[in-house]
């Protein structure tokens, strides 16, 4: 829904009905922030589920035991590296926006490419992790929560990548300028949000 909504906004952000948007705020950015607020709450509900399960485990050990009696193990180091990729992508995106602000469309395109590359790498590494974890969502309540959280996040990365690719296309068409870049800004809000959620997820699920 994020992507479809994004376009509608883009269209009407330009004042489609001849009504000058009053009060100097961009409806598109505002709605992106609200939408992100809504997404934060979605993750909050999933984290709630995760913590109920986590503190509901009868035995003292954490992580709990799998159905086969072995403890769940998560590849913390590999994921830390992956986390750094994603965090880096936020900075490259920011760098691209800075280039645009300096009037350098080429720089923006370069920044977007690197960001998308980093994001895609993150997704691939994460998928690879799924394949080698050694447990499935059906294993125990914990594994269900783990896959739900990381899976939802992965979907969000995917949506973020789609949004960034659309921005990239528009950047090639020279749609953005120092004066007009609202859709790009909205897309970057979304990307930073996806990023921050991952850092939280990494800390709360993998590390502690």
């Amino acid at each position: 829904m994020a992507t479809t909504a994004g376009h509608g906004h883009a269209g009407h952000d330009d004042g489609a009905h001849g009504a000058a948007p009053a009060h100097g705020r961009s409806p598109l950015l505002l709605s992106m922030l609200l939408f992100i607020g809504s997404e934060v709450m979605l993750f909050a509900s999933l984290f709630t589920a995760y913590f109920f399960i986590r503190y509901g485990v009868p035995n003292e050990t954490w992580p709990p035991l799998k159905a086969d009696g072995e403890p769940f193990e998560l590849p913390v180091v590999m994921t830390l590296v992956n986390t750094l990729f994603l965090v880096m992508s936020s900075f490259t995106l920011w760098w691209g926006e800075q280039r645009l602000a300096a009037g350098d469309n080429k720089g923006l395109i370069r920044g977007l490419w690197v960001t998308i590359f980093l994001g895609a790498t993150f997704l691939l590494i994460q998928l690879n992790e799924y394949a080698h974890l050694g447990f499935t969502p059906q294993d125990r309540a914990f594994s269900g929560a783990f896959y739900t959280l990381t899976g939802f996040h992965g979907m969000h990365v995917l949506v973020g990548l789609i949004i960034l690719s659309m921005c990239l296309r528009r950047a090639y068409k020279r749609d953005f300028s120092t004066a007009y870049h609202t859709p790009l800004t909205a897309g970057s809000y979304y990307w930073h949000f996806v990023d921050i959620v991952w850092v939280l997820l990494f800390l709360l699920v993998y590390v502690i």
């Binding site: 109920f52 399960i53 509901g56 125990r140 309540a141 594994s143 269900g144 929560a145």
Partner: peptide, 21 residues
């Protein structure tokens, strides 16, 4: 649909959690 165990107490799930959410 997917066979997870969020609400199966014998698998570490919790039904009261549903009500909270």
């Amino acid at each position: 649909v997917m066979g997870t165990h969020f609400f199966a107490p014998d698998q570490g799930g919790d039904v009261v959690m549903y009500q909270h959410i």
